[in-house]
Computed example of a mutant assay.
Amino acid sequence: MSSKGIALVTGAAQGIGRAIALRLADDGFDVAVNDLSPNSQVLDALVDEIKQKGRESFIFVADVSEEEQVKEMVEEVVKKLGGLDVMVANAGVVGPRLARLTDLSAEQWDRVMNINARGTFLCYKYAGLQMIAQGRSGRIIGASSVAGKKGLATQAPYSASKFAIRGLTQAAALEFGPHGITVNAYAPGAVDTPMLTTGSPDPVALLSRASFKEMSPLKQIGTAEDIANLVSFIASKESQFITGQSISINGGLFFD
């Protein structure tokens, strides 16, 4: 079965990243998946699912905040699958819950910024270098957030990192556009994933779910598949005239 192209999805072990990897496989892409080493077994199961769809897949364990690891990851994707057509820089963390700015440590700030902002920069950089070298255009896609369009109290590092991704996406779109490479980001609102709630009876998590649901005109929160549907379109040839955008997908929680 011929491939529609080669995709790499970071932070693919669960939630939105996992849904994106499966959707791109359904769309006809061979899909490399990435996450941290504690999630290796979960990634193994994901690779099996992708292969059952008739697509090629493999795991590359890496920390996206480490430059050499990201460089090696892209090189390995090219070596094993034959190139790179879609980079989905999905990996990210929320940071400490309900932490006021004045209570944050510099270490807590750096951790969120390193994974979310620096990690996305490194993925954009090395995907861009590879796609330019290939000369066959490409799609680079990042993960912003509703928190990257309107700051959230008690989530300063997360909001700052997601605003940074929007700026990075716009700058990269300008630089990579002449090579036929589009660069966009998805900006979800509340999505029913482990990042929203750990599944434990945490009253804060439960309150967040109820609050987000009430704030949405649709009176619902999103699913990982909702986000994957958007990424599917951004990754497609049909999206060729869209670049530099951070597209809100939030059930009306926030209007651009």
Rank of each mutant, 00 (worst) to 15 (best):
L101W: 04
S145P: 07
G54V: 03
K71P: 00
T243N: 00
Q108N: 02
C123K: 05
A205T: 07
I249R: 12
V61G: 00
D63P: 04
S159T: 09
D63L: 12
M1V: 12
V231P: 03
V64L: 08
L22A: 07
Q134C: 05
A13W: 04
S216W: 02
D30H: 11
L84E: 09
L43E: 05
T182S: 15
I16H: 01
F29D: 10
A117H: 05
F233C: 07
Q240M: 13
E75Y: 09
S3Y: 02
E72S: 14
E214G: 12
I221Y: 01
R97H: 14
Q134P: 02
L129T: 13
P201I: 13
F163G: 06
E49N: 15
W109T: 11
T154A: 12
P201H: 10
F176P: 08
A171W: 04
I115H: 02
M195Y: 02
D85G: 13
V77F: 05
V204M: 09
H179N: 12
A7Q: 06
V183S: 04
I140P: 04
M87E: 08
L101Y: 06
Q240C: 12
I247S: 03
A147D: 06
A147K: 00
Q130D: 00
L230C: 08
N34T: 11
S161G: 12
F254A: 05
P203L: 04
G252V: 13
S239G: 11
E107M: 03
L218N: 02
V204Q: 07
E238W: 10
F121V: 04
